[in-house]
Design a protein around this nucleic acid. Sequence first.
DNA 1: CTTTACAATAAGCGTATTCTTATATAAGCT
DNA 2: AGCTTATATAAGAATACGCTTATTGTAAAG
Lengths: 115, 115
Amino acid sequence: MNKQLSLDVSFAALADPTRRAILARLALGEATVMELAQPFEMTQPAISQHLKVLQSAGLIVVRVDGTRRPRRLAKQGIEAMDQWLAMLRHAMEKNYDRLDQVLSAMEHPRKGKKK
Amino acid sequence: MNKQLSLDVSFAALADPTRRAILARLALGEATVMELAQPFEMTQPAISQHLKVLQSAGLIVVRVDGTRRPRRLAKQGIEAMDQWLAMLRHAMEKNYDRLDQVLSAMEHPRKGKKK
DNA sequence: CTTTACAATAAGCGTATTCTTATATAAGCT
DNA sequence: AGCTTATATAAGAATACGCTTATTGTAAAG
């Protein structure tokens, strides 16, 4: 039932400033397409296409209200990315100040080289 | 001095599975281009190009060691994305279970219709 | 019923991405 | 010095992306 929301699609969705702005707006609460389009110098179809991308990425969900389709954030997709990044950051913090720091310290060993 | 590491470039860098795998590998410690290329069915130039993307995104840094160019993770760039996502997640958690949940609950209050 | 408002979809176009192969450069070996 | 290793860069092709305008489908309003 749950689509295969890959990180590929999720991160690609975040790579566009318009889409990040849309998400930031939705963090304040749900909004319709026209409301979301208003701050941008872009046509409505362009926004609809961005929303489609965000949906495929599992970052937002739609609701039907007459002719309106208010969007709101989808917890799942956002947390998936958040966790991947946290994983990376933790691993990084564990290593960064140990092994690699040492290696990088012996940056220019002048003439003599031992390795 | 500090290049303008935009989130655009950073998130776009994470959108590729090869590049995420490279980062995951670097989370274990630094590695050369050949070491990074070995797990993939891709040519060395392809990996070099991916590394260039990751560097432009401020996600890795390079070190010179003879003819080798070992890469390691760059704290800054990773934390920037991490923070943006955390911001979004916090805002989401604050609203999700309140205002929007209510709005979504009254799914179709069709001008006083049934149920 | 006709018009208006909200939104999705289609087609087209310019630009960007991601590979490939071919070549270049610099350091290490023998 | 000439080979070998490690890496970068260039050029080209296939595909993906982000817009636009034009059109369509519905629900609401008059």
